[in-house]
Design a protein around this nucleic acid. Structure first.
Lengths: 245, 245
DNA sequence: CGGGCCGTTGAGCGGGCTCAAGACATGTGG
DNA sequence: CCACATGTCTTGAGCCCGCTCAACGGCCCG
């Protein structure tokens, strides 16, 4: 921890999108005690029922959060990337209620919950930013539920391609209209509540309609308005406005 | 507001389930500025895109939170009851991202967001309790998504009957094994991502298997273990343990 | 060059949807 | 107290989106 200021930079960036921090706030965030840990693709960072002691900031790579039914069905409800505070949920409530799994090779910073909570209450600006982050995540969950519960396969897929584009752009990881999906079609299926076979056909059909082109996992959005219309996508639920206000 | 201590009692009860409060904390909660408002069944308390200034504690009756797709499909993702802090989400993020609608005749207390936020940061025990409440809600959303995305109709229905039983019991509103559903089959369908026709057939089939009996909207659970098994139900996601710890 | 994961495509099936009509409740006004 | 309207529950019949099972091809890596 010779230069802690470097390590937690992604967290600071994320929090600054949520609210205004002053110099002292920034210092305090970067001074959080953090331990860097690496995981290989598909390894579990946290498992359901674990007693979580740390929360977990993603520094590099992608992870998913998911739950499984008794008969092995899997539902992914969140894809996390650089800067995401992936496990505030689990750790604050002591017992993890879902899995956190690496999608690609992953680098995370583990921060003791107690340090995180103390900071939130000693520095209200930080507390508010963290709270906002939590609420925005809840909003994304709601949209995800609407997606899975009330939209057909094509619409779901288009919706998720739009959401992912915007979130990658916000995190500064790629352009809105051209990115690489860090997941297999089977994992996409688990996110959308479909089967991998159907995901495949759906992607093909979106491509045939000229909305996207793709080579392997790379997605190029050819017609943003068309894709957003097909996906019934309105970015309001991401509360991107917070970043500007 | 001659006896404010009475009005916000349901809120205090709820927060005390989330964490330990001392005498000063309790006084501060009850001293929150609140305005009591009544709504008739089906009226909207908050609409998506509203600029919410207040958060909203349910004092009596039931409400749902939902979103709609562009083509009119509706997804309910939360049923709220006495004591629930139904709108912290919307109000803290300024622009409502979902609707809050009365299911039955309703009595709510409106509290200015600023008062709520100030209290959360001036009294950490209260802040923690509110934060826990938010995170438990997020956990319920996740389970709801799993339900809608990965379980078949019968399982979804059984799951929801179990969840509702426990939450009613926790709120002190009825016994775990016998209660009245405050919603029509069509509204149930909107919660489960099914159609009302299928909800009807599913309820019938659960009754035929001896898991429940029902007369109109009243549900009697005849075989809790059986229903929980059919519904793939494990109450961990409700984090009821917090109430005891 | 061989093994394994992933993507792609075909064929058939089924859970849940759609459309539609009838049976009950509950309320309202005459 | 009846006539009628309205909303909800119930049941039937047919259909379709998305699932299942299965085979094959491409790409990556050892």
């Amino acid at each position: 921890m010779s230069r802690p200021s470097k390590i937690l930079d992604p967290l600071l960036q994320k929090l600054e999108l949520m609210g205004t921090l002053d110099v002292e706030d920034r210092k305090a965030v970067l001074a959080l005690p953090a331990r860097v840990v690496r995981f290989r693709a598909l390894e579990y960072v946290v498992r359901e029922k674990d007693r979580a002691q740390n929360c977990c900031v993603l520094l590099d790579g992608f992870a998913v959060r998911h739950k499984m039914t008794g008969d092995g069905g899997r539902q992914i409800f969140s894809i996390n990337m650089r800067g995401d505070l992936a496990d505030l949920q689990n750790s604050f409530l002591h017992i993890a209620d879902h899995h956190l799994q690496a999608l690609t090779d992953l680098e995370v910073a583990l921060i003791p919950v107690s340090a995180m909570v103390d900071l939130a209450f000693s520095r209200p600006a930080i507390g508010r930013a963290m709270w906002s982050e939590t609420l925005i995540e809840a909003s994304i969950f709601r949209e995800w539920t609407l997606n899975v519960g009330r939209r057909d396969g094509r619409t779901r897929m288009a919706h998720m391609l739009c959401e992912f584009a915007l979130r990658l752009e916000l995190a500064g990881l790629s352009a809105r209209d051209h990115y690489v999906l860090p997941m297999s079609q089977e994992q996409l299926a688990d996110a959308l509540g479909l089967t991998s076979v159907h995901v495949n056909r759906t992607l093909k059909s979106l491509a045939e309609d000229g909305l996207v082109t793709r080579t392997r996992r790379s997605i190029k959005i050819e017609d943003w308005a068309g894709l957003a219309a097909q996906g019934d996508f309105d970015s309001a639920y991401l509360h991107l406005g917070l970043a500007e206000a």
